[in-house]
Design a protein around this nucleic acid. Structure first.
Lengths: 153, 153
DNA sequence: TCTATCTCTATAGAATAGATAGATATTAAT
DNA sequence: ATTAATATCTATCTATTCTATAGAGATAGA
C-alpha cells in the first residue's frame, strides 16, 4: 500500500503539471485545491525538492514549480523519494547493505529471490510511467466519460 | 515492504514444504527452526489455515500440514491472506468498495490508473510463483553455492 | 484421567504514519 | 528601510498499525 504521503505527492505534482504557467504555485493553493493538510504537504514538497523533482522560490511571489518537464519525471522517482523505493524486503534496497537477521544467506533466501522478481516487475512499470503519462491518462478518462454523458443526453 | 508476518508465513510454509513427511509438524518446531516468536507464529498459522493453505490437527500427535501440494500454493495467495492483497491503494482492493475520500471519481484518478498497472504487474508474478518454486529456487541457489565452494577447495 | 497439542481472547510495547504549531529566513514591492 | 508574502526549519503530538506476549480453553490420543 502506498502511503498517504506518496498519494499527496502525486496529487500535488499532477496539479503542478496541469496548471503550471511558468509562475510558481503556492503551497496554500496546492493544499486547498488538492485537499491536502497544509503543514503535511510542506514536508512532502521539501522532500520532493531535495529529490530534484521540484524547485522553489522563497519570498513574495514565490512558490513551487516542477524542476523538470512532467515527461521527465517518472512515478518511480517520486515513489522512491517518499518511500525510499519499493523494496518489499529491506535486503533488496539498493543503498541498504543489511542482511535480515533471520536470513543466513541472502543469496539463497527464497523469499528474497521471489521478491526480487516482484521488485523488477514493479520497477519496470514505475520507471516507464511519467507524471505526464499519469496526467494524460486521467484527462483522457475524463474526456471519455464526458463524451459518454453527452451521448446519453 | 512486506510485513514480518508475511515473511514469517513464507518461512514457515517453506519449512513445511521441505520437511513434510505426511505427519503433522509442531508449531514449536517451526518456531524454533525458523526462529519465529512462538505466539506470533500461532496467529499467522491460524490465518493460513483459515485461508485454506494449511490444515491442523489438535491434540497429542497434532500439528500443522500443508492443505495443498506446495506447487498449488501461490505466493500471491499467501501474501493475500496476510496482507489482504497487494493493493497499493485501497480502491484497487477487490473486496473493498470504498472511494478514497480525496478522489472525486475513481475512474478518472491518475494515481489509481497507474497503480492499477503496477498491481497487475505484481499479481502476474505472485500468481505465477508457487511455494514449490520458491523452495526450489532456494535449494538451487544453495546447490550452486556449495558447488562453487567445492571447486575452490 | 493425563498430557500434549492447537485455539481463542486480551493486552502491552514499539514503531510508523499522519497531522499540527510556531518561530525563522528570504524576497519583492513600496 | 519597512512591510507583507512566502517558503523553511524544528519540535511535538496523536492515532494507528505492527510485533510480540500471556494465559485460559478446547480437543484428542494414550
Amino acid at each position: 500500500m502506498i502511503s498517504k504521503k506518496t498519494k499527496y505527492a502525486l496529487k500535488a505534482l499532477g496539479y503542478l503539471a496541469e496548471h503550471s504557467t511558468g509562475d510558481p504555485i503556492l503551497i496554500s493553493e496546492l493544499a486547498k485545491e488538492e485537499n491536502i493538510p497544509r503543514k503535511f504537504l510542506e514536508a512532502i514538497l521539501v522532500a520532493l525538492r531535495k529529490g530534484g523533482v521540484l524547485k522553489s522560490k522563497i519570498g513574495k511571489g514565490g512558490g513551487y514549480m516542477l524542476a523538470l518537464p512532467a515527461s521527465a519525471i517518472t512515478i518511480g522517482k517520486v515513489v522512491g523519494i517518499l518511500e525510499g523505493g519499493f523494496a518489499l524486503v529491506e535486503c533488496l534496497n539498493d543503498n541498504v547493505k543489511v542482511v535480515c537477521e533471520e536470513c543466513g544467506d541472502p543469496a539463497c533466501c527464497g523469499i528474497r529471490l521471489v521478491m526480487s522478481d516482484v521488485k523488477k516487475s514493479i520497477d519496470s512499470v514505475l520507471e516507464s510511467t511519467t507524471l505526464a503519462d499519469m496526467v494524460e491518462r486521467s484527462e483522457s478518462a475524463r474526456r471519455k466519460k464526458s463524451k459518454i454523458v453527452d451521448f446519453s443526453i
